[in-house]
Amino acid sequence: MTNYQQYISINPNIRFGKPCIKGTRITIQDILVWLASEMSFEEILADFPELKEEHIRAALAFAADIERRTRLIAA
């Protein structure tokens, strides 16, 4: 997903400035933790109806992009 930025916002007044899904207080970290704990997309969407599948994919793309940038800086 190359356009993940349209789904993510960073606001210092929401969740201490952590990246969140726009219009929610759900952080990218929240989504990654749920996925790491083996929650499926379907389970996450059932528990958080304000999310859509593209929000979960945007969270993954954001995390991958951060990892890519970290590796470039460290090299």
Rank of each mutant, 00 (worst) to 15 (best):
P49G: 03
D47T: 09
I21M: 04
N11A: 09
R71G: 00
M39K: 15
S40Q: 06
F48W: 12
D47C: 12
R69K: 14
T2C: 02
Q5T: 09
E43N: 12
Y4F: 15
P12S: 14
Y4V: 01
S40V: 05
D47E: 14
A58S: 15
G17N: 09
I8W: 01
P19D: 12
M39I: 00
T24W: 08
A59M: 06
N3L: 06
L35A: 02
V33H: 10
E67L: 12
M1N: 09
I66K: 11
L60E: 11
D65R: 04
Q6A: 10
I10D: 00
N3K: 10
I14G: 06
E43A: 15
P19G: 08
M1R: 10
P12A: 10
D65C: 01
A75K: 14
E53P: 03
A58L: 05
N13P: 00
D30G: 02
R25V: 11
D65K: 06
E38L: 07
R15H: 07
H55C: 09
M1G: 13
N13A: 14
L51C: 03
K22C: 10
L35C: 02
D47K: 15
R69M: 11
E42S: 15
E42C: 06
P19T: 09
L35S: 00
I66C: 12
L35P: 01
F48M: 11
S37H: 15
M1D: 04
T24F: 07
P12G: 07
D47P: 00
E43G: 15
A63S: 15
W34G: 04
G17V: 11
L72H: 07
E42R: 15
I26A: 03
L32T: 05
I73C: 10
E50V: 13
I44S: 03
L51D: 00
I14N: 07
A74V: 06
K22G: 04
P19N: 11
F62I: 01
Q5V: 05
I8D: 01
F16L: 14
V33W: 07
L32C: 11
A64S: 11
I26F: 05
A75P: 00
W34A: 11
I73E: 10
I44M: 05
F48N: 11
A74E: 12
F41I: 08
M1I: 06
E42N: 14
I66M: 10
Q5I: 07
I31K: 06
